[in-house]
């Protein structure tokens, strides 16, 4: 099967794998750890480089891109604080995007899932596994320097507070935040919930400017994805 890989029209280090016979276009990133997959995603060779297909059903960031989010503020060499990294599906794509001079600090508090991420990070030195609770940023203050971006996807109440507390510790002024947040019940036609509105209020009060919001259906029915800039 022949595949062509082309750069995403807007976002740095993000690619389209174009399948010639079907015309399908799938998101991909350049594999920083050639030969290794993270969650069973497909590897593709093109002009001497290896790419990993990026599954929007497994990664909310990929879903947000497919849903047309306007800004993806992740660039070569960036340092990212990733809260709720789980086994590393999305954070490994972030690791591809920032490249070997960037860093992805992967905070996760379940030892069982983080154990897998430690295995993934063995082949990716720019992924830094941290068994920590994102609600207590001061606990990892000695390990994490100032960062360019915070990415947060923790299934937790008070997500806005967690993000803002971490931003106060680590996010540079005018840095960016990406947040997957529970927006609706499973019923997609319902109004955004009260909780969601409250969270947005908190974010604005704590110096985040919301630049764009997309809903992730059909890839994920419960979440909205926010991109914000930090203006303390």
């Amino acid at each position: 099967m022949s595949v062509k890989v082309e750069s995403h029209e807007k976002f740095e280090n993000i690619y389209w794998a174009v399948f010639k016979d079907t015309g399908e276009r799938k998101l991909a990133t350049k594999n920083l750890a050639p030969g290794h997959t993270v969650y069973g995603e497909r590897l593709i060779k093109y002009e001497g480089e290896e790419y990993r297909l990026w599954d929007p059903y497994r990664s909310k960031l990929a879903a947000a891109i497919l849903k047309g989010i306007k800004v993806i503020p992740i660039r070569t060499g960036d340092r990212i604080l990733y809260l709720g990294a789980a086994t590393g599906s999305t954070s490994s794509h972030c690791s591809d995007i920032v490249g070997s001079n960037g860093m992805v600090f992967c905070v996760e508090f379940s030892p069982r899932v983080l154990r897998e991420l430690v295995g993934v990070a063995e082949h990716r030195r720019n992924m830094i596994p941290l068994l920590e609770d994102a609600r207590f940023p001061w606990k990892y203050r000695m390990l994490v320097p100032q960062v360019d971006v915070i990415y947060q996807d923790v299934a937790q109440p008070e997500q806005a507070k967690i993000l803002a507390d971490n931003a106060e510790f680590f996010l540079k002024p005018n840095g960016w935040a990406l947040l997957a947040i529970k927006a609706r019940s499973v019923d997609v036609t319902a109004e955004p919930s009260e909780v969601y509105k409250k969270e947005i209020e908190t974010l604005e009060k704590r110096n985040f400017e919301i630049k764009d919001v997309v809903h992730l259906e059909p890839f994920d029915k419960a979440h909205a994805f926010l991109v914000m800039q930090y203006k303390p």
Partner: peptide, 23 residues
């Protein structure tokens, strides 16, 4: 910068492994 990244990676990995073990 590369060496700094590598050191951070190693330290964090030791620390994390230790904590996973304790858990």
């Amino acid at each position: 910068l590369q060496e700094y990244i590598q050191l951070t990676h190693q330290i964090a990995t030791y620390l994390t492994r230790r904590k996973i073990r304790t858990a």
